[in-house]
């Protein structure tokens, strides 16, 4: 039986607020370990707990069974009724002190070694591939919700926006943080698993650069920034179901990716370009990315 949150977990500090609720760092009074509490206030109507909550929590529980090394552990789920109209569902996750953003900031002067980046990328793609094979889109991949343990293990976190993927589902237009958003989301076209690959590509570049690759200020600005690097896509690749016209952008040619990520090796640059492909259908999948020669190349380990 789940415990009442107030009793078993003692909040220590607020970690941050998200679209769905606040996250707290807390101590598990039974084990003494730190945990991350994510509370969601759910409006209940005459039909009880909403379908979305039931499905999402069940999905998290299902993913948990696989015990994947690159996904953050869900340790417990509690539900307390606050009133007839509101139930508080608390998800108890393992607590990892450091996210990738801090990890990159803390790395000493020349930045991470090529071998370290290769290892982080492999783990990151393993996690993404696991989610995708389970019909889950992360949809909000960014350095802030990629956790790195003190042993250097990567763990994907914050599935607040994850949903069981379904083609018929109405996908909300605003999901991925602007800088890591793929063109199809910026253009408000339809999207699927390739969204996470684009974001992963941006993060790949950021591991070398130690600053974000595309820092747009608006959707259009963001698109302009990414066309400066990958070039303006040909007419036939431009999605037909969008309002924004291709003519809106200057006819830019792709520039060598090494101009922006000079430290990357040749195989890495190839892989990065496959992840930062404009057409989501032509973008590499997580599974195929893991088989890319970049990961076979052991010289980067030295």
């Amino acid at each position: 039986m789940a415990h009442v949150t107030g009793v078993q977990y003692e909040p220590v500090a607020e970690i941050g607020g998200g679209a769905y609720g606040t996250v707290y760092k807390a101590r598990d009074l039974e084990s003494g370990q730190f945990v991350a509490l994510k509370s969601v206030r759910v409006q209940t109507d005459q039909n009880g707990l909403p379908v979305s909550t039931v499905r999402e929590v069940a999905l998290l529980k299902r993913l948990e069974q696989f015990d994947h090394p690159n996904v953050v552990r869900l340790m417990d789920v509690c539900a307390t009724q606050r009133s007839d109209q509101e139930t508080k569902v608390t998800l108890v996750f393992e607590h990892v002190d450091q996210d990738l953003k801090t990890y990159l900031e803390k790395a000493p002067a020349p930045g991470l070694s090529p071998g370290r980046i290769q290892d982080l990328m492999r783990q990151l793609l393993c996690g993404v591939s696991f989610l995708h094979s389970n019909r889950v889109l992360h949809r909000d991949l960014k350095p802030e919700n990629i956790l790195v343990t003190s042993q250097g293990q990567v763990k994907l976190a914050d599935f607040g926006l994850a949903r069981i993927y379904s083609c018929h589902m109405a996908l909300t237009p605003v999901v991925v943080t602007l800088w890591y958003r793929p063109p199809e989301v910026l253009l408000q076209s339809s999207y699927a698993t390739p969204v996470d690959i684009w974001s992963t590509g941006c993060i790949f570049a950021e591991m070398f650069r130690r600053k974000p690759l595309f820092c747009g200020e608006s959707e259009v600005d963001q698109l302009g920034k990414l066309f400066e690097v990958i070039g303006l896509p040909p007419e036939d690749e431009w999605p037909t179901d969008v309002t924004l016209s291709r003519k809106h952008f200057p006819p830019l040619l792709p520039r060598p990716i090494t101009d922006f990520v000079p430290e990357i090796n040749e195989q890495g640059a190839q892989l990065l370009l496959k992840m930062l492909t404009f057409d989501p259908l032509k973008r590499i999948s997580a599974l195929n990315a893991l088989e890319h020669p970049y990961f076979q190349d052991e010289e980067t380990l030295t």
Binding site: M1, A2, G48, L49, A58, L60, K61, V77, A79
Partner: peptide, 16 residues
Amino acid sequence: LRMERKVLLGLKFDLS
């Protein structure tokens, strides 16, 4: 609805 919550908690939301 009370039974729904009881079942969800009893099964720890694991409905897969």
